[in-house]
Design a protein around this nucleic acid. Sequence first.
DNA 1: CAGTATGACTAAACCGGTCTAGCGAAGGGG
DNA 2: CCCCTTCGCTAGACCGGTTTAGTCATACTG
Lengths: 341, 341
Amino acid sequence: MARPTIADIARRAGVSKGAVSFALNGRPGVSAATRERILRVAEEMNWRPHSAARALGGARAGTVGLVLARPARTIGLEPFFGQLLSGLQAALSTRGTALQLLVVEDTAAEIEVYRRWTSEHRVDGFVLVDLQVRDPRVPVLEELGVPAMVIGGPGRHGRLPSVWADDREAMLSLVEYLAALGHRRIAHLAGLPAFQHTRRRIRAVRDGARRLGLEAVSLPTDFSDAEGAAATRALLARPRRPTALIYDSDVMAVAGLGVAAEMGVAVPGELSVVSFEDSALARIVHPALTALTRDTFALGEQVARALLALLDDPGTARDIKNPTPRLTVRESTAAPGDRTA
Amino acid sequence: MARPTIADIARRAGVSKGAVSFALNGRPGVSAATRERILRVAEEMNWRPHSAARALGGARAGTVGLVLARPARTIGLEPFFGQLLSGLQAALSTRGTALQLLVVEDTAAEIEVYRRWTSEHRVDGFVLVDLQVRDPRVPVLEELGVPAMVIGGPGRHGRLPSVWADDREAMLSLVEYLAALGHRRIAHLAGLPAFQHTRRRIRAVRDGARRLGLEAVSLPTDFSDAEGAAATRALLARPRRPTALIYDSDVMAVAGLGVAAEMGVAVPGELSVVSFEDSALARIVHPALTALTRDTFALGEQVARALLALLDDPGTARDIKNPTPRLTVRESTAAPGDRTA
DNA sequence: CAGTATGACTAAACCGGTCTAGCGAAGGGG
DNA sequence: CCCCTTCGCTAGACCGGTTTAGTCATACTG
């Protein structure tokens, strides 16, 4: 038999379709004995639910969506997304839910996908990343009334619940670490100012530097290796150049490392380099990068669990705090002017 | 009105559901005038097909699957998949088809996903990557009778059609390039020997070296930065160490670069380094890596188009050749012993 | 002009589940 | 002992499309 349906099971078990549906979904309406028998028959016949049939009838689509807006041909998935993806899928798969991933060109296209997938009933909910300052996606998702979890925060994402890590606290710890090493002039190679987390990190650098009496400057970039390199070149060419650089991403930090090597600036002897984002990339370059480490896989799991809970009960929208990233010291940082390093 | 259905359109246009279905799908059965009117009404009401309803009734699921088997926490580093994904999606989206991506732990789990998604009608077809030597996934997909496109080849994938690039030709061009620079002792840091492309590349290195009278050795690794680094360390510690290294992946090449720096071996002065895989990563490290460049985005598009054609007409299974990767020379290669570099 | 082919369209079955209304039997309360 | 509730289950509507069988009017054929 090709693909048994619940009608086949019902016939074989001598019950009705309804009884089979109840039994297979673990809901009341059948006795324990009958349920047992039905499950055994379903197992024997190797029955699998037809996802489309289930999605019809107003039930779940069994899928949640993740849409990334970035130019298609630029760098592939950053390690962050690979990890996040795996974490999301790990948690979702325990509940038979799939993750639909789509990469689009820009935010407008992203919003269009939200509308389409919602009206086509393709997904039950969304995961939102890269929260922007006055994020246009938030009101759209609220209007669509579709469950969604935001990664990032706190605050500024309307009524949508979020999972967030304390970027401010993390950045402060970075600045304090550099200050403790003896650095007095630091620079921060930030990401796109349109992102909320970029703004938060810039503010944290400013506040931390002020408190510790450091000179600090933040330079916004577009997160690309090209701009990271260009900004680094400009900084190192200054007469009183900084003795430590904080990069918002591992890719930019690696690009910066390349510029330092090219300009003959020794790392960490003459320049300390720190990445706000840890990854395999940060480990394999030479010198290995001191970086903020966070468990992105676990973050993904947490987000997925929260979204599943939200699907079960739309009332449970609450913000959840993720552990603050911890500093992993490697070879790219030292006291300023330490010629032995 | 929440979500109009074809019944709503039918009522408004004063025709039957069937007529609407015919009109919206561009098939005969309605006059041009009626079709026009129905389309206008559908547009006015902002109608969108309900993907589940369509998938029921034996029609398309409107989705194809890509399942990657690799340890959950390691993915994301390779730019290859990001590019491939974007290319696949670009071509698929022109036909309203979505891509379902899943990362699983191993090949056994991957096969289980093929079975499940097929029996659940979740996808219409699959894209298969990382072809292995006696790949157990091939017979399963053949048995399931589900359309699938293989990336890799040529040969050794049963009746499944593939899109392939000439790895052998590419590797030979690499070896010839190094020989022309004057290298006589080269080593090849290969990937997992279980992969067909790894075997092909190893054979190409051996054949090329024999023809050109070089000493060559291939060392298999697991593609990880750790093994890449370890193998590099072992090679450079040999008394008569090679003057050029070919890495099967950019990640390993970067790790190797780190080892060389650590051991005080100048690149490219004392050692030339080449990566078989180009990427942003290869560009941003210092020195920038000479690498084989291929248009992975275009590859993805090509695969997607071939798969869509296969869905339309299961008879059209043909292997397609992708352009051979071209060498991009950067800073990591020079003549052996060139102290000016 | 009868007979038939063709085109436009309708009605209804169908895909494979979910879910509600309802029914008979058993159990419990007063 | 009767009524009412609860339990276990069935029948069938329903989700939103696709597809087939069939109807009717018109055009074509000989």
